[in-house]
Design a protein around this nucleic acid. Structure first.
Lengths: 356, 356
DNA sequence: TCGATTTTTGTAATCGATTACATCTTGCGA
DNA sequence: TCGCAAGATGTAATCGATTACAAAAATCGA
């Protein structure tokens, strides 16, 4: 098997172009980056040389000299999570348009991975940082703030005066979720949690509890199942649910995946959704519209969240930030679909008889 | 609202450390990158200065001098596709371990976006390229090969002697899919396609047809529904299916999403899966295990694919490539789940007798 | 046409590291 | 103690662009 070897491309430098056009490197540089500063005739001469030689500036040299890398670091807990993937898409849309590149920092839910990205920031490989983590990564000695680079938090808020937050109104939405279930007649609730240590989870649970209190039944009758933001958490919650005598009838899951896992498992045991138990999710991932029954959930404006976060970051990089733009909180939309419905039985005893 | 402004971090350069330690910059550089080349005493002196000053080398300057960027460009058709997200995870695992960073090139299914990444390659912002696209991106004038950088194709093969392919045995798997359905007694088949212009789709359809021919019934009795690699393609195929008089009983979808879309839609019309129609998908995304019924599908070793691709690329970058490693074709695994079953329909009773 | 002013272009310093080569130390054997 | 090789460190060139400043050319009015 004889393969061609990599073409060893002769690298064309700005000096080569200058020689070809019979001008200095300064002039070539100006033609390429300062429009209108060079006489038309010279300009054409240089452009001809550029075209002819196929010259493309070495971006590393540019970066060194200008101190701008035109790259942004995006740190996310897990890229295979459709929520982050979609946010990243929004970020990408916005940044690409302005000529910025994206370096991804995928933690894959392992915190030890964050150190690497702190170093990356400290060694000035990027002009700014987008955090989807809800906390400031550190490497044991130092944290990302010490890079002096602009940082913006998306998805999960960070409590730090120097860091703008671009997030959704989770807490309000979670409260509304409970109110919605209560409005359908539900009185006993279940909460399927996300990763307990995460800011997002804390916000959502807080909202859930506020909702419970707001129902005004004078008591907080709910079960809480702990887990992480994955399918299997819902399955585990379902196992626990199935063993209960007095099952809750209104379940709120902190993410769509666990809602889906829950539904799948309980249906296997012939529990009907929504007749026997109503389930409401959170996120609005595309997949939630393809389950059976289709999932009632709150849709996050994920793409918009990414765009807005990137926009704020770029303003910060360019020093065009106005204080009133700092914090953004986008609303969520309730998608009323088929996993929620009115309580059909006033008394749990009769419910059980009719189901089994 | 008074916010703290970004700390203006004073940048510490190698010269500062050298002065602090009372040595030359050359020595500092050697301490940091050539272990054992500097006398222990000097070494400790320098390290103390480094620690004390919190020095981290400016990576842009390093890149310029060493001509190594330690970055890799990964071009993918669409990042919100769970298949690519998972492959990217594998790539990330492997590259991160070796100190490489990832710059993402998300085409978002829009080919006009590829130009940007060609320029990025030509301006030497990366040391190598991983293509998940199945073709060589170009910017109108030049294509990525002209960067002279090592390129590796994953997921979708590229026919170019200079580019190693790290892919799966799609064609074989697709053939087996048909054989599997045929083995269950199916004689009329349906094929739900992916994006027709993509290499992946062509490979899979080719395999499907080979499978049909291999059944040896002397005819090719199948319907083909065109679409792209998304849920809605399956829904559209289902609409067409539902209108047919002589419906096929064995459906093969070129990806899990469209299989899921198909199943959801036909079940809405009380078509039973697998009693009335068997469906088999392709990819093995996590979600396929949470549908109802759970989806029979071929699992791609996605994570492994990413790792292997990254591994080949790094070998190429380091010039350690042995020709026999060039092409990798990983096998797929059939996950027999609940959307496939024997033909039950009475018209086929005779067939069943003869086959089973 | 001349000189002053403005515009265009060139020269060389600069960004911050690495590294070839030169020079200085050290260690060791005679 | 001296000489020489090996080892450690320093000096300065280098990577490839941008840009401050200097110099040259063009423009314009008198």
């Amino acid at each position: 098997m004889s393969r061609k070897r990599w073409r060893s491309v002769k690298e064309i430098r700005i000096a080569d172009v200058a020689r070809l056009a019979g001008v200095s490197t300064a002039t070539v540089s100006r033609v390429l980056s300062e429009p209108g500063k060079v006489r038309q005739k010279t300009h054409d001469l240089v452009m001809e040389a550029v075209r002819h030689s196929g010259y493309i500036p070495n971006s590393t040299a540019q970066k060194l000299r200008t101190r701008r890398t035109m790259n942004v670091l995006v740190v996310a807990p897990r890229l295979t999570n459709p929520v982050f993937a979609e946010v990243l898409r929004g970020v990408d849309d916005e940044l690409t348009q302005s000529g910025y590149g994206i370096i991804i920092g995928n933690l894959d839910n392992r915190r030890e991975r964050e150190a690497r990205y702190v170093d990356l920031a400290l060694s000035r490989q990027v002009d700014g940082i987008l955090l989807l983590t809800g906390y400031i990564p550190e490497n044991g000695t130092r944290d990302m703030r010490e890079s002096g680079l602009p940082i913006v938090a998306i998805c999960a808020a960070i409590e730090d005066d120097t860091i703008p937050n671009v997030v959704v109104q989770d807490r309000e939405a979670c409260r509304r979720a409970v109110e919605y279930l209560a409005g359908l007649g539900h009185r006993r609730f279940g909460y399927i949690s996300g990763t307990p240590s995460s800011i997002i989870e804390r916000e959502r649970f807080q909202g859930f509890r506020e909702g419970i209190e707001a129902t005004g039944f004078g008591h907080t009758d709910y079960v809480r199942w702990e887990g992480t933001f994955v399918f299997s958490t819902g399955v585990a919650a379902a196992e626990s649910f199935l063993k209960m005598k007095d099952r809750p009838t209104g379940i709120f899951a902190a993410c769509d995946e666990s809602a889906i896992g829950f539904i799948k498992r309980v249906r296997e045991e012939r529990v009907r959704v929504p007749q026997d138990v109503s389930v409401i999710g959170f996120d609005g991932i595309e997949f939630a519209d393809y389950t059976e029954p289709t999932l009632t959930t709150f849709r996050q404006p994920l793409h918009e969240l990414g765009r807005a976060g990137a926009d704020v970051l770029m303003k910060l990089i360019r020093n065009q930030m106005k204080p009133e733009d700092w914090d953004v909180r986008l609303p969520l939309t309730l998608l009323e679909r088929d996993t929620t419905g009115p309580v059909l039985h006033k008394d749990y005893r009769s419910l059980r008889r009719s189901t089994i």
